[in-house]
Simulated assay, not measured.
Amino acid sequence: MAKKKSTSKKKQEIPYKFIFIGVITIVLVTFTVHYRHGINYWMKTVSRKLKGDTENSVEKLTKYDVRNIEVMDRYYLKTFGLDISQYQGDIDWAQMKTIYDIYPINFVFIRSTMGGFNTDKKFDENWEGAKQNDFIRGAYHFYRPDENSTAQAQNFIRNVNLKSGDLPPVLDIETMPRTQSMERLIEGLKNWCSIIEDHYGIQPIIYTSDKYFENFLRPHFEGYIIWIANYNFFVEDMKSHWNFWQFTEKAQIKGTSYKVDVNIYNGTVDGLKNLTL
């Protein structure tokens, strides 16, 4: 009797094994089809390395690179660019032409100032490098919520000389205030924007995270060009109000050994030029 029970139990387990294998197979096939462009790039990179060609391959591909390629392939008709700061170190601008040797880099946002008194150590160098290599360039200010908004606007104005063909100034707001209310913070952000617009004659761009914008800023900045940071691995579609989308902070490109942020402008290169001074 014990032997018969054991046989019966084995017979019952078999279907569950097939179900498990079937589910795994479906998941793998779905993943492969969905990320086929990134996987194809990964396979070509491995092939190049096996043949000894390391110059035309990124150092080490990760799952983020696979996802990045998939997103960029989905928006291949849009316009791609970077944003950089001193954290990218010394940049070889002559090498910085494409992303993954596929997608052209058309614009670069460069960090200029932080708070009321600080400047990015590489701003002048990067600002000139972008100009000399024919990138559409823009400068952004990292806003510190607990510092005076007028002083922060003046800091940007002292250090950034915008010319015809440059993108509008960018207000980068990412952190929560510690010593004031959100209402006071909004007042400060609007004051910064007003001073900047009066000086440069153009409305600034607002950069922030998706949640920060939805929770605090959206009702107060209607009509502004919005640049959203959302790195969620499973987010692959732009929302209608995202004029720019910073979809990754982990891309690898030639020209710097550090990871970089990559952005999509939701339009053509000509459309981007229409935003400039």
Rank of each mutant, 00 (worst) to 15 (best):
Y212Q: 11
Q180T: 10
E59I: 09
S164H: 13
D198C: 08
S194E: 12
N40H: 10
N263P: 03
Y231M: 15
G188V: 02
I110E: 03
A229W: 03
V46F: 13
S209Q: 13
I196L: 07
P219K: 11
R67V: 04
V58C: 08
P177A: 11
P15T: 10
F123D: 03
L162G: 02
T45H: 06
Y143T: 03
N232M: 09
N106Y: 06
D146M: 01
R144Y: 05
Q180N: 14
N40F: 11
D270F: 08
P145V: 06
F80H: 04
V66Q: 02
V260Q: 00
H141G: 03
K11Y: 09
S240A: 14
I206T: 03
L189V: 13
E183D: 13
T54M: 08
D53V: 05
I14W: 07
E174C: 05
S57R: 08
M182Y: 12
I24M: 15
M238H: 09
I19D: 12
G271N: 06
K121R: 11
D90N: 11
K10Y: 15
K44P: 01
S194Y: 07
L275V: 11
H141W: 05
A153Q: 00
G271V: 00
Y75R: 12
K78G: 00
Q152L: 04
F123N: 07
F135L: 12
G89P: 01
P169A: 14
Q12I: 09
G115C: 02
G165M: 10
A153R: 03
